[in-house]
Design a protein around this nucleic acid. Structure first.
Length: 373
RNA sequence: UCCAAGGUAGCUCAAUGGUGGAGCACUCGGCUGUUAACCGAUAGGUUGUGGGUUCGAGCCCCACCCUUGGAG
């Protein structure tokens, strides 16, 4: 059987676990390692698809739970699928709603069958099951569907995490069984196991046994200290096959991206660049810039002097601060575009550095310029 | 000139005669498979002025100043 999405390993870094690869999808190739901007509700908030293309985004993430509630997956099927509906002809990965099991804590109840949600929009009741999640993602027509999982909270006791990951594994089998056309869309499995090394190993073995076209590491970056996260991540990557893409879910600060790549992760996604943009913060080559701060009131220099994005080419820090303070929508647009450009460009540089066997050097240079994260 | 209603944080306003608060603004912090153009924290006061009553006054009394509306 031919999978919709395949992974081509192009080059391994000589010193670290970093690797340069390529994902082949029904909507074009994706050069890895890659950062995927998040477009939860069928839009990367405040950024036009045209701008995303200019920035160089290769693949977007969208969300099953949110699109199911509004406007409804049947409507999107009727529109010709999510790609057409949102005018994005490059690749799309859809999350399964599994993260909402975690983030909508008070609004859901987990059972073996699935998860009962109360809509955060109108309070109505809904049942999301592995079968239902796959059905919705098939209607959306994403290139990569994620398995319906439970992202366990941190901290969580061993007993809970074990129960949770075993249920997630059973759910993965049901997702695979419900998956109708693996040649049109690929299903990625998600490893869980919290911060417990042996449970991670159990989870990894269970999902790798299904021989899926890609594997994700879930349940990290949920509030645990960075050292712990990296230690767990070390173990996780080692458990995954080298001939399949590895996706670290929910990671998006520059340091975590470098650390992930260094350990052999190929894909990342995160709301952080767009969210902090809307809240008045930018990532720049010189570090984090909280543009809302009074110190930038009369700073007429560009946000990042080393950046060639639309925002940095045309506007000053003083103007960006003014827009934010004045609650102007353009503030969210310009800062979001910049932050996505920044991370996308950073990943581009990382890929190039791996090709030229100077990943570690690039990482050092980047850290030196960026300062504390 | 008279009548009325008012003067409390930068702004708009709360506060039985009993420890003067809120929202917004300001300043700062946080945000990691989006419940998030969000959340949190700090700061900010001779309660228009001067007297009086009272154990105690933003609140009651007197005078004055100022604002708004009305009448002339």
């Amino acid at each position: 059987m031919k999978h919709a999405v395949t992974y081509e390993l192009i080059k391994m870094d000589k010193e670290t676990g970093a690797r340069r690869g390529r994902l082949h999808t029904p909507h074009g190739a994706v050069e890895t390692p890659v950062f995927m901007p998040v477009g939860t509700a069928g839009t990367v908030k405040a950024v036009k698809p045209e701008s995303l293309k200019e920035i160089g985004a290769q693949i977007l993430l969208s969300n099953t739970y949110h699109l199911y509630l509004r406007p409804g997956h049947e409507l999107i099927r009727e529109a010709g699928g999510l790609h057409r509906f949102m005018n994005w002809d490059r690749a799309i990965l859809t999350d399964s709603g599994g993260f909402q099991v975690f983030s909508l804590g008070d609004l859901r109840k987990i059972t073996e069958e699935g998860v009962r949600f109360r809509s955060h929009i109108d309070g109505s009741g809904h049942m999301l099951t592995p079968e239902r999640s796959v059905e919705i993602q098939q209607a959306l027509g994403s290139d990569i569907m994620m398995a319906f999982d439970e992202c366990a909270p941190y901290p969580a006791d061993r007993h809970y995490v074990r129960q949770s990951l075993e249920r997630t594994t059973r759910w993965l089998h049901r997702c695979k069984a419900a998956h109708e056309n693996p040649e049109a869309q690929s299903l990625f499995g998600i490893m869980q196991g919290g911060m417990y090394r042996d449970l991670r190993a159990e989870s990894a073995k269970a999902i790798v046994d299904l021989d899926l076209p890609g594997y994700a590491i879930g349940g990290l970056s949920v509030g645990e200290p960075k050292e712990l996260m990296l230690e767990v991540l070390d173990g996780c990557v080692a458990l995954l096959p080298t001939d399949k893409p590895r996706y670290l879910m929910g990671v998006g600060t520059p340091d975590y991206l470098f650390e992930g790549v260094e350990r052999g992760v190929d894909m990342f996604d995160c709301v952080l660049p767009t969210r902090i943009a809307r809240n008045g913060t930018a990532m720049t080559s010189g570090g984090k810039v909280v543009i809302r701060n009074a110190r930038y009131q009369r700073d007429f220099s560009p946000l990042d002097p080393h950046c060639d994005c639309y925002t940095c080419k045309n506007y000053s820090r003083a103007y960006l601060r003014h827009l934010f303070k004045a609650n102007e929508i353009l503030s969210a647009m310009l800062l979001s575009e910049h932050n996505l450009h920044f991370l996308t460009k950073m990943m581009e540089n990382i890929r190039k550095a791996i090709e030229e066997d100077r990943f570690s050097q690039y990482k050092r240079d980047f850290y030196n310029a960026y300062g504390p994260f």
